[in-house]
Design a protein around this nucleic acid. Structure first.
Lengths: 208, 208
DNA sequence: TAGCGTCTAGACATACTGTCTAGACGCTAG
DNA sequence: CTAGCGTCTAGACAGTATGTCTAGACGCTA
């Protein structure tokens, strides 16, 4: 119906809430305690104190709510991605890589419920699939850029493939940490292992 | 109802099929073309030409069907896991690691529909969660064993954490390859990158 | 021949999704 | 002032899914 496209700015309700934001906040809150696939639209309606019609006025499905939550979490993540692009002197590489990895860990700590949900559900919806794959492609491009700029890695290894592998490795380990899976639930261990793999596979530096 | 526990060996139907096997085969066939979350029990019934009552006589849910399919795929995988445990002379390490990675790729190629399904759905069911996490824990233990036996890796890096990281890296890249995601859809590239990361993070060998 | 295990067809209660109707309320254009 | 539009509510609705249940058919075995 494209109801959203031509609509005016939402007029505040009695209590001044913007229903679209209320729905997003309520869904986010529910994700703190339950998996996305366990949530029904009815659960969201109850949590947000909103009528069914209002929900479908703003969102075509609960997947679209998740998409918006993810876009916002990702927007916060862009600040994090920035340092990865900078070029460093060899003796600062380890600190720089470690710094980026720690930033990733912090983002995942703060946005865990939403990121957990997208990682678990991106395959169930075309829009979510495109969203997450684009996001990973962006990180891959940044990592690959870093590899080629530093002229790192061994001959015979495709820089783009290595960049993609390190990106998806991060996705997986941060996700497992968010699930409290040992040994990654301990953030120091997680950062240490990720840094080790990045440094050795990129620069061949096994020394601490 | 525990119907399965005390039942006698199934008596062959007119056409001699064992319904349990028919249901498993039909579900496996459907997974070639559709995601597990897209399948309804009714779809399985139609594909297997079996009545609703029969399905629930053998399985408590479609998740339980997937669990059995995964157990069988995993059983095949145990042959693959064996070589990882052997200890090699330093000059044969690369060939050995590469060999194991190629075996993993082959298993994933052959069992792609089932493994794709478990990777996408293990979080949606407690039994599947335990199944997949146990499986990953097994691979992690084998990898960690190899690390400590070879006395590989840098000081300050927990061998168990490195073993787990390499295990989950494999899970993710094989899965992406099964989805035809670039650049991992090309098996040579996949094996090359995985071998590179294993060799450098374990032995610090960046040379080809 | 009676009973048990297997199997079928189909009804059933329950739950979820997305659509739709009818009406309430407030703002704004004419 | 009033008519209309956008927002919102409550709730009905059709369609689809799950898991349970009943009634009956068939074949083997005690």
């Amino acid at each position: 119906m494209e109801a959203r496209a031509g609509r005016r700015a939402p007029q505040p309700k009695d209590d001044g809430r913007d229903l679209r934001e209320v729905i997003l906040a309520a869904t986010r809150g529910l994700l703190d305690e339950r998996r996305f696939d366990e949530l029904s639209v009815a659960d969201i309606l109850a949590a947000a104190q909103v009528a069914r019609g209002s929900f479908y006025f703003y969102f075509a499905s609960k997947h679209e709510v998740l998409a918006e939550l993810v876009r916002r979490a990702i927007a916060r993540g862009h600040e994090v991605a920035q340092p990865w692009l900078t070029h460093d002197e060899p003796d600062q590489r380890r600190a720089s890589v470690r710094h980026g990895i720690s930033h990733g860990a912090r983002l995942w700590r703060e946005e865990a419920p939403v990121l957990r949900a997208i990682v678990e559900n991106w395959r169930t919806d075309p829009e979510l699939t495109a969203l997450w794959r684009d996001q990973m492609a962006g990180f891959t491009a940044a990592t690959t850029e870093r590899i080629t700029t530093d002229d790192a890695t061994a001959p015979g290894v495709d820089p783009a493939a290595l960049g993609a592998a390190l990106t998806w490795l991060g996705e997986r380990l941060y996700y497992l940490a968010a699930l409290d899976v040992a040994p990654f639930a301990d953030e120091d261990t997680l950062v240490e292992v990720l840094t080790h793999i990045w440094m050795t596979s990129l620069y061949g530096e096994s020394a601490r």
